[in-house]
Write a protein that binds this DNA or RNA. Structure first.
Length: 478
RNA sequence: GGGGAAGUGGGGUAACCUGGUUAGCCUGCGGGCUUUGGGAGCCUGUGAUCCCGGUUCAAAUCCGGGCUUCCCCA
């Protein structure tokens, strides 16, 4: 592949999606894609890692219907204002027109909360912490792109209810911790968590915190969000409990969305290089591919030896493939490199004589010899070290893209090369005019303030010059 | 949201402007023979004009509409 990931990301991404057989775009419904096994196996692994983190923290799996009766969807006013325009509706069934339209869930608050109201009676029913893995549907009006913006996308959503505001607020912090573990520790995707401006939060939330990552073209992509819902849903949905003081009170709620399609896009974009995809060891459908190299006169000998290595790795639980197809070795090298298999083994006459194999990590391409008895340890070690290298490379690149500016002109200049620019800003509650000015003149967005970061002291807003109350992060976005 | 480009076997393309032969080529897929340390070779078979309508003796080609994809800008 002769396409540069950074200077020509669109083309790089399209080529990888197609040539590595990650998606089939021939389904012919706008914004809907067929996710192929080479992508979906990895997405399932991603799901299992994320679900494990949620369950460690006492979230229980649940499955709610995809259809939401219109009367439920419209109960919370801002929510329906925010989503109303992008709902897919079911109006007919068989030969009948439905008396009440059914929405395909764009998100599940209004599906789940009527039941929460039935389930929650007393303090002993709280907290409720549930998660659901599945798809949601939104009639996006912006240009759709595979994985990055679709009309159907896969995610996990959690919906938690608590007796007190403080418990709900600390749940938001726990959600952010889950993102640190899942996105960074496990997937190696750099990101920052930002509290969104009030005018840019989830419809129906008190506050929205979002994880933004950066794509190779310098634009940010929102990949997860956690919302402090407060009591905005518990009131219209009448979710109450009897407190110790004998009074009925509305619960405090949070919800948390982990956007698997976009996270997958970020995974591909962050780790890949100009040779194609690179899958981290723990996430690849095939962790080790064995390529046998033989002549006509030693074919069986090489294959038998390779099968022995295959069995040994398989018995240790690795996902391994022995490529016995009729292609030439060079073809196989290129093909598996393009598909991002983290470790390749080459086995030929020389390796048999030395009682070992050649090990080649995908990222460096450097061949090294491993003897048969150190083989298993070496595979684990190479897998871990490769992930470490990928993370280091990603982190350096991410840090390089984080800039700061103290004037509007400086902000403008720094945005030209993409990335995220930190500036002092007047107000995330009332600064919408400054926000709009940045949006219109710089074609970029104020994404919000970083959780846990201090307030500016004695600095002026880069737009209006009034006292700055926040450091905010500005970037062009998907 | 605005603009542009494009839809021909599974994939990539030629023919389209200037309507007319059996829709050509590369690749893939099936079969056969030979091949394996960085994208092998020969033989053979297979398979296509996005959908609806219009113009015409005749449409892949011209016109209108739809659907989808890609790119650029917002």
């Amino acid at each position: 592949m002769d396409i540069d990931k950074h200077s020509n990301f669109s083309e790089w991404f399209s080529t990888v999606l197609k040539e590595a057989k990650l998606v089939d775009l021939r389904y012919n419904v706008k914004g809907f894609i067929v996710i192929l096994p080479w992508a979906f196996k990895t997405m399932k692994l991603m799901y299992s890692f994320a679900e494990a983190e949620l369950e460690k923290r006492n979230h229980a799996p649940v499955n709610f219907p995809v259809v939401i009766p219109e009367s439920n969807l419209i109960k919370e006013e801002e929510h329906v204002k925010g989503f109303g325009g992008e709902v897919f509706w079911i109006t007919h069934a068989g030969f009948n027109r439905l008396e009440e339209r059914l929405a395909l869930r764009p998100t599940s608050e209004t599906a789940m909360y009527p039941l929460y109201a039935l389930w929650i009676k007393g303090k002993s029913d709280l907290p409720i912490k549930m998660y659901q893995s599945g798809a949601v549907w939104r009639y996006e009006t912006k240009a759709t792109r595979p994985f990055i913006r679709g009309r159907e996308f896969l995610w996990i959503e959690t919906h938690d209810a608590f007796a007190t505001k403080n418990e709900a607020l600390s749940q938001v912090m726990e959600d952010i911790e889950i993102l640190n573990v899942f996105l960074w520790d496990i997937l190696g995707i750099p990101f920052i968590v930002l509290r969104r401006p009030q005018w840019d939060k989830f419809p129906g939330a008190d506050d929205t915190y979002a994880a933004d990552t950066l794509m190779p073209d310098g634009k940010v992509l929102q990949i997860a969000t956690t919302h402090m819902l407060g009591q905005r849903f518990s009131k219209p949905f009448n979710i109450k409990f009897m407190d110790e003081d004998g009074r009925e009170k509305f619960v405090w709620q949070t919800c948390f969305g982990i956007g698997m399609n976009r996270i997958y896009a970020a995974l591909v974009a962050w780790h890949g290089d100009n040779k194609g995809l690179i899958y981290p060891f723990s996430l690849s459908p095939i962790q080790v591919v064995i390529v046998p190299i033989f002549k006509e006169n030693n074919k069986e000998k090489v294959l038998n030896y390779a099968r022995g290595v295959y069995k040994k790795l398989k018995s240790k639980g690795f996902r391994v493939l022995l490529d016995e197809s009729e292609k030439t070795p060079g073809f196989k090298f290129n093909e598996w490199e393009f598909k991002g298999v983290p470790i390749r083994m080459e086995i030929g006459e020389k390796e048999i004589n030395n009682e070992g194999v050649l090990i080649v990590p995908r990222d460096t391409g450097i061949r090294s010899f491993a003897s048969l008895n150190e083989l298993v340890d070496k595979v684990s070690k190479e897998g871990k070290e490769m992930m470490k290298r990928l993370k280091e490379k990603n982190w350096k690149e991410f840090e390089k893209s984080l800039k700061s500016a103290s004037t509007f002109e400086e902000l403008k200049k720094k945005l030209e090369n993409g990335g995220i620019v930190r500036v002092p800003f007047c107000s995330l509650s009332h600064g919408i005019e400054c926000y709009n000015k940045i949006k219109e003149e710089l074609k970029a967005e104020v994404r919000g303030e970083k959780v846990g970061e201090g307030k500016p002291k004695g600095l002026k807003c880069v737009v209006c010059g009034k006292e700055a109350n926040h450091f905010v992060y500005v970037a062009r976005q998907y």
